[in-house]
Amino acid sequence: MNKPFQTPIVLLGARLLSPYIMLFGWYVIIHGHYSPGGGFQGGALLAASILLIRVAGGRRVAQLQIKEFATTPLAVVGVSIYFAAGLVAVAMGGYFLDYGMLPIPGMDPAWLRYTGILIIEVGIGLAVMAILVMIYDNMVRGEDYG
């Protein structure tokens, strides 16, 4: 990206703000199954915290946080968590995403459904975060922006 002037204050502010946005994103994901929010909104907040550093710091600083080649495996891990939770329920004799059939010992079905929604929301959050960061990386690729 073309930069008319360069100042460390923008990067300092972004560094101050980014961890709190990321913490709030995890809060939204973890509390998503009984309050507003959820996997998509939390993942978008995580992506916003990473994109803030990428916009403020440029390519070299961005590589210190999450490298460009790490976004695709993160997305694959997130989608795999989602489908693993669904297909394990199928393998245990229920329907797809039937959380009551998940093989976690010592839990009654209500708590199993509670935990199952939490598991797939962590997967959705990871996938959304990785895909949004990947879109940004592919949009700025080929342009020397830092």
Binding site: M1, F40, Q41, A44, L45, A48, L51, L52, V55
Partner: peptide, 19 residues
């Protein structure tokens, strides 16, 4: 409203600036 605030005011703003 939460989704609109996160996506509309956060992520698409950054993507529009890049464009």
């Amino acid at each position: 409203g939460f989704t609109e605030a996160v996506i509309g005011a956060g992520v698409t703003g950054i993507l529009f600036v890049v464009v």
